[in-house]
Design a protein around this nucleic acid. Structure first.
Lengths: 201, 201
DNA sequence: CCACTCATTGTGGATTACCCCAATGCCGGG
DNA sequence: CCCGGCATTGGGGTAATCCACAATGAGTGG
């Protein structure tokens, strides 16, 4: 299994312990937190896995913690736990991007299944994030001129036209173009176009 | 406003009429149906707008109608109406792709707002669908050979290599390549790559 | 002051891409 | 049987790309 961790935030110690035991018995690593603040204090963008979050808690509620994490650009999938059914709350949470919303008392197996799904989703997410980061790093390694040349190449312009647009010689454009291909690790303009298109659409 | 229509399906005549009046008073066209079957019998893939669907109905329920529409590849956004709060049902519906889930009694303005959002979403969807259809039509106009050549061009291969792969002359590859550009309405291989990448990622 | 990166330009040749003109063979429809 | 679409190939020429060798000037950091 992946190295994702389930982060459990609930102010009820009995539930925390029961959940942690439940997940670990199915081979899923779990960490528990007594409050939203407790979790936030240790959170970093590198946390991977998923969250199981109680709605009703002292201090910051689960929903508030969720909002806070969204502000912090966390992409951790969130599964809410709630004691009393509240449709508008569930709908609102899901529309804001929560992954799931489960009522207590919950079915143990069902909850674990949902967590495992969320972990798989997060793992896939991390992978495409890594791809995006790699591409961003390559883009960042381009000099200003190289970036300008690349943009014009992607606009389908000929070297001659690019040279004219930038007010430089065709020879210089060729040099920049070659550097772009090298730094972006592609061999042709077609590959470059595919690489760049992938990241925008 | 757009020409999207709200399709209301509810077996309670009083609610149907109230909803229809409500939407029309805000400038949104509405059509009403007494049952899921009533709606399905007239549905076509060209229907555009959104659905407001009662959950509890005689015969086929709103949820069943939703499932049926998904099977039929309908992309109409669906807003469910329900009389009794049921969190698992709401969560399940939203996770299956429903757009919204509203409890009765609902706030009139709030519901209209959600419908208008859904209509806007559908309009945007139709636009990108149209783009996809146009592209598909262009692809369909390619002959087998042209398609093969295009694939190899998108793989970044040189005409010489393509000719060798297909066992034909470079001259012939050039001809097919030119036809591909013409039919796909692009001027360069880069544009072609961008056009094709858009539709897969 | 020196090393290093970046942007710039030149010459010249090998390789490709792009196009016009022209032609052949196959196949399905009218 | 003729027409049109499709696949195929050739000749011949222009334009563009790719590259190796070679060099200059500005700006940064040690």
């Amino acid at each position: 299994m992946s190295n994702g961790v389930v982060f459990i935030v609930d102010d009820d110690e009995a539930i925390r312990d029961a959940l942690a035991w439940l997940f670990q018995s199915r081979g899923v690593m779990a960490e528990t937190f007594v409050s939203a603040a407790d979790f936030l204090s240790g959170w970093t963008p590198w946390h991977r896995g998923c969250m199981v979050l109680d709605i009703r808690m002292e201090g910051m509620t689960g929903l508030e913690l969720f909002d806070r994490l969204q502000e912090l650009k966390s992409s951790l999938p969130v599964i809410f736990l709630t004691g009393h059914g509240d449709v508008p709350m569930a709908v609102s949470a899901l529309k804001k991007g929560a992954r799931d919303f489960v009522e207590k008392p919950f079915n143990d197996n069902d909850l674990v299944d949902r967590v495992i799904e969320a972990l798989a989703w997060d793992a896939a997410q991390r992978e495409s994030d890594a791809d995006a980061a790699l591409l961003a790093a390559r883009l960042a390694s381009l000099s200003l001129r190289e970036r300008q040349v690349m943009d014009l190449v992607l606009a389908g312009k000929l070297n001659k036209v690019i040279a004219d647009d930038l007010g430089i010689t065709m020879r210089t454009v060729e040099v920049h173009r070659a550097h772009v291909f090298e730094k972006m690790e592609v061999r042709t303009a077609v590959e470059l176009a595919q690489l760049m298109s992938q990241k925008r659409g």
